[in-house]
């Protein structure tokens, strides 16, 4: 009896732990999703129905909210600017970071150590430490609202972490491969382009996804440098609706839906890159 009781007590202790765990996860899921579910159900409702009860399900599917949100949030302009800005940020970052990662990992240049430490320090440098002079210098040069200038700034911010991610890939490629290419008469550029770059591909994809998302979502640099109606990104265009559309929450929710839904789909499709990319570099030991 006592033996059985001990065993039984053990099992029930684990069961109650399991139930507590399930409750914890359920609450966590509910809190994580609640604001997004509210957007989803209120996207199709008119303003009066939202004010009456934000928790009620829509009684009809109405797309009028979307047309008003699309116009009010300047999304036609925003989507073009966001794609140009994030696309160029990814290209600039990938080009600079892959080359630098290769050179720094191979340690052929004098000062590689100092440069590596420099990029390490740049990983956590506060944006505000360089933001103000940079803004007024670019303003003098007439580059405010120039998406290539803004993309270069976003690249500079994303470069250090990208370099370290890609550098880890290069360190995993045996040096003998470089030597073999060298013996075959390949120039350093040919070695990089035809040997190293293809082997770095998984890293390049991870970096591209993370940098794209970072620059798509970025706020401080974007709001400072993409001033002017014609230069708004999708997020800035939506932000310009806030307050003005306080009495048209249907449009506000539709705007949020337009902004959020593509990102969620993007993340769901690429989830295996995401979870890996998010924790890359963060897990130590």
């Amino acid at each position: 009896m006592s033996q059985g009781g001990g065993k039984y007590g053990m099992a029930s202790r684990w069961d109650s732990a399991r139930v507590a765990g399930n409750i914890y996860l359920a609450v966590a899921v509910l809190i994580a999703l609640l604001p997004l579910l509210l957007v989803a159900i209120n996207t199709f409702k008119p303003h009066v129905a939202i004010v009456a009860n934000p928790l009620s399900l829509p009684t009809s599917i109405n797309f009028a909210n979307f047309t008003r949100a699309w116009r009010g949030g300047h999304f036609s302009t925003g989507i073009v600017n966001s794609l140009l800005l994030s696309g160029s940020t990814v290209l600039i970052t990938l080009a600079c970071a892959s080359l630098a990662a290769y050179a720094l990992a191979r340690r052929q240049i004098r000062g590689w150590q100092a440069m590596t430490i420099y990029f390490l320090c740049a990983t956590t440098v506060p944006i505000q430490l360089f933001l103000f002079p940079l803004y007024f210098v670019l303003a003098k040069l007439g580059l405010i609202g120039n998406f290539l200038a803004t993309a270069t700034i976003l690249s500079a911010i994303n470069l250090p972490i990208s370099i370290f991610l890609l550098r880890a890939y290069v360190l995993g490629i045996p040096r003998e491969i470089d030597d073999a290419a060298f013996m075959d008469g390949a120039t350093p550029w040919q070695t990089f382009r035809h040997v190293i770059l293809p082997l770095m591909q998984p890293g390049l994809i991870t970096v591209a996804i993370i940098v794209f998302l970072n620059s798509w979502n970025e706020f401080l640099i974007t709001t400072t440098f993409q001033k002017g109606r014609g230069n708004l990104t999708m997020t800035l265009g939506y932000l310009s609706m806030n307050g003005i559309y306080a009495t048209d929450q249907g449009a506000m929710m539709a705007g949020a839906f337009i902004l959020v839904a593509p990102i969620i789909i993007f993340v769901l499709i690429l989830q295996r890159f995401f979870i890996a990319g998010m924790s890359a570099g963060a897990v130590k030991g």
């Binding site: 994580a32 997004l36 004010v51 798509w216 929450q249 949020a256």
Partner: peptide, 27 residues
């Protein structure tokens, strides 16, 4: 993936959603 969703959305979307559909005294 569910726990990461709020993290991958832009601060603008998150902030405006909370202001309008959670905190707002009317809506």
């Amino acid at each position: 993936i569910i726990f990461l969703l709020p993290y991958v959305l832009s601060p603008v979307a998150n902030a405006v959603i909370w202001q309008n559909i959670i905190f707002d005294p009317i809506s």
